[in-house]
């Protein structure tokens, strides 16, 4: 596979968009802008290669179905933000990191450790009295009670396919 060419302007544009979206919904991009832009270049590279934003720091299979949990933002981002103040790639960081109270680094890979557990825990409990099913965003945990999940998570912008039936 050849190395992809991604235009500088596209990186900058996506950086600005992701930064705006993050700040609007309580997330933060890594303040190390050069590092962050390289990751965003990686996202655009993976979009060209695979057609979706596979995590730049993980080896994608190339099959969207198999990689759904590592489409950025991945299913592991928020858990890692809580535990390590950053996501696996350190594209997203906590407020502590933004304030300079913590530095980023390599953190353990969570994929494959919690995936099975998350799957096992997601079997919905039958509460027949509910008038609507409850959907949970697997990325950020947002819950909503309606016939179908929203097209895009209003909190973290994950797409509908990232929702699971919660109750």
């Amino acid at each position: 596979m050849r190395k992809m060419r991604v235009a500088k302007e596209d990186v900058l544009k996506l950086y600005q968009r992701l930064n705006d979206e993050a700040e609007a919904s309580g997330y933060h991009l890594n303040p190390d802008i050069e590092f962050t832009k390289e990751l965003i270049r990686g996202l655009l590279t993976n979009e060209q290669r695979y057609g979706y934003w596979a995590c730049p720091c993980r080896l994608a299979s190339g099959a969207r179905e198999e990689d759904l949990d590592i489409v950025c933002p991945c299913d592991y981002r928020d858990h890692d933000l809580t535990e390590y103040d950053q996501c696996y790639c350190a594209l997203y960081v906590s407020e502590k990191v933004v304030r300079g109270e913590k530095t980023t680094g390599s953190i353990p890979e969570r994929r494959g450790t919690t995936q099975e557990k998350a799957k096992a825990g997601s079997s919905s409990k039958a509460i027949s009295e509910l008038s609507f099913p409850v959907w949970r965003c697997r990325v950020c945990g947002y819950l909503c009670a309606r016939e179908t999940p929203p097209e895009i998570c209003p909190i973290c912008k994950a797409r509908r396919e990232r929702f699971e039936k919660f109750i």
Binding site: F35, E38, L39, G42, L43, T45, C57, R58, L59, S106
Partner: peptide, 9 residues
């Protein structure tokens, strides 16, 4: 390494 990964770089 991966060519897109910050920690690899």
């Amino acid at each position: 390494a991966l060519s897109t990964c910050g920690w690899c770089e």
